[in-house]
Design a binder for these strands. Structure first.
Length: 362
DNA sequence: GAAGACGGCC
DNA sequence: GACGGCCCGTCTTCA
């Protein structure tokens, strides 16, 4: 019996920015930034993805566009075209599926491949990695980084180790050598907040982290602590499994400047609701829970939600509930609103019941 | 179970 | 100081 797995994590390099550069060769080697927000031309918004050239100036995902501009006056800002990036993504995911026994898409530009059955030795890993990189480059003109490891977490950390267009292969006997010196932040699930919490206790590297027991970490970080521990000791063992159906769907939009104009806000809520219904119906979903998300100009956020007893995909039902939720909140609020969102959850496929029933009657 | 806050990702 | 989301999933809390 050989239960040793070989997992690939494939991660596209600066995906959105790379697609834009592919579409326009003038942008090559320029500090390109894909921006999202209410008016990216006027620097109202944030960086979604920065090209590697832009990163040399300290520009990275999440920072305000105006900050990015201040770091480099030559930046080229491209508004995000998510639906187009999704098309490109689909092409890439089809390539990756072909080369895997089990496949799991994680996000628009990331996936896990379980390739255990296709691998006999180190050389065959290298061959497979190169084949995948080559096909993506030839077909789509894009580069990716690939991490290889005995489990998903190590593969993921490895793919981020050398970028862009990197390949990092971690054999089972090199796990400690690889993980020990890495900062805790490289562990998936450890963000700014967890990093800070650990730093207070002098824990900065993964080798510091594994000095604690699993129960120490759980009492410190809650349930997440257990997962983080397993990853740190190299024993995370979750399966590569196909992505399930989505659990929620929402749209969120910022105003160019904060507003308390109720009419304008409700107009936006209707717009967002309409988009949701359109998408929900196209994908043949129904929902049972509806939420609004409000961000005020002081950056505080509140969400309010409401569940029905049955599923629906009706616009009227959504808009009524969502406007009610908004009215309830905004009655006693004087703060201006910067961003508003609508979200539906508790989704089911409309046709699912029929499918199950028809199976019984076959 | 429902609701709401929160964290992480590109 | 500036500030997103064709952004979602999960954790926590309370009933």
């Amino acid at each position: 019996m050989n239960s040793k797995r070989v997992i690939f994590h494939v991660d596209m390099d600066a995906f959105y920015a790379s697609v834009e550069i592919r579409e326009n060769s003038d942008l090559e080697n320029k500090p390109v930034v894909v921006g999202v927000g209410p008016n990216v031309e006027k620097f109202k918004g944030v960086v979604s993805t920065a090209s590697y050239k832009a990163r040399e100036y300290g520009i990275k995902a999440g920072i305000p566009l105006i900050q990015a501009y201040n770091k480099c006056k030559d930046i080229v800002i491209m508004p995000a075209r998510i639906s187009y990036y999704k098309e490109v993504s689909n092409n890439i995911m089809e390539i990756l599926k072909k080369y895997s026994d089990k496949f799991q898409q994680i996000s628009i530009d990331e996936a896990y491949l379980d390739v255990s059955k296709r691998i006999e030795d180190y050389d065959s890993i290298e061959n497979l990695v190169n084949k995948i990189k080559e096909e993506i480059l030839n077909n789509e003109g894009l580069t990716c980084s690939i991490g290889v490891g005995p489990n998903k977490s190590i593969a993921k950390i490895a793919s981020g180790f050398k970028k862009p267009s990197g390949v990092t292969i971690i054999n089972s006997d090199k796990i400690r050598k690889f993980l020990d010196p890495l900062p805790v932040k490289t562990i998936p699930g450890v963000g700014k907040k967890t990093k800070k919490l650990l730093a207070k206790r002098g824990i900065e590297k993964i080798k510091d982290l594994i000095k604690l027991s699993k129960s120490d970490l759980i009492s410190l970080l809650g349930k997440a602590g257990g997962k983080i521990y397993d990853i740190a000791i190299g024993r995370e063992s979750s399966e590569v499994k196909p992505r399930g159906p989505r659990k929620s769907l929402g749209f969120i939009r910022s105003f160019e400047s904060s507003t308390d104009d109720i009419k304008k806000i409700k107009e936006k809520i209707k717009e967002l609701s309409k988009s949701i219904i359109k998408k929900i119906q196209a994908d043949d979903f129904q929902f049972r829970t509806m939420s609004i998300i409000i961000r005020f100009d002081d950056f505080s956020v509140i969400t309010r939600s409401n569940s029905l007893t049955h599923h629906t995909n009706d616009y009227k039902v959504l808009i009524k509930n969502v406007i009610d939720l908004f009215d309830k909140v905004y009655d006693n609020e004087k703060r201006k609103i910067k961003r508003i969102g609508v979200r539906v959850s508790n989704l089911t496929k409309s046709s699912l019941k029929q499918e199950i029933l028809s199976k019984y009657f076959e």
